[in-house]
């Protein structure tokens, strides 16, 4: 990549006001570094990934409202987590966390466990029990 070929496309980096560093060769063939504001192919890939996550969150929300899963799954998706990550944050076995996705199991969870989940998601127990209370 030549120095003047380093892409300067619009990207989500702009919001944080920072530019990433790229390596490129100058006119004499010497390597140098150039700041880049972004590159479309990867911005598209990132946006797609975010779209996917939003879709997953929306799906989970619908399933919570239909009483097919517990709010834990919704908050897990909202925080871009998957089962191994969430299990590691609450410090429980994966199968236990998965079991807590069942609404009838979730409804019987102890205050202690609920508090653990609420802490991980940085919300109150009321919000954990009722996803409508969560502003987002």
């Amino acid at each position: 990549m030549k120095k003047d070929e380093v892409p300067q496309d619009k990207s989500n980096l702009e919001s944080a006001n920072f530019r990433e560093l790229c390596y490129a060769v100058d006119e004499n063939g010497e390597y140098t570094t150039v700041n880049s504001t972004g590159w479309d192919p990867k911005t598209i890939a990132l946006n797609k990934a975010i779209e996917d996550i939003n879709q997953r969150v929306e799906d989970a929300k619908q399933r919570v409202l239909n009483n097919q899963t517990s709010p834990i799954e919704y908050y897990m998706e909202l925080h871009k987590m998957d089962l191994p990550i969430l299990a590691s944050y609450v410090g429980l076995w994966k199968w236990r966390v998965k079991r807590h996705f069942k609404p009838q199991v979730f409804n019987k969870l102890s205050i202690n466990l609920l508090q653990k989940y609420a802490d991980v998601f940085d919300i109150s127990i009321e919000q954990l029990k009722n996803i409508e209370l969560h502003a987002n």
């Binding site: 989500n12 919001s15 944080a16 920072f18 990132l46 946006n47 975010i50 871009k80 987590m81 990550i85």
Partner: peptide, 8 residues
């Protein structure tokens, strides 16, 4: 970090 880049 920009929100979009904050993954686990």
């Amino acid at each position: 970090f920009p929100d979009e880049y904050r993954f686990h």
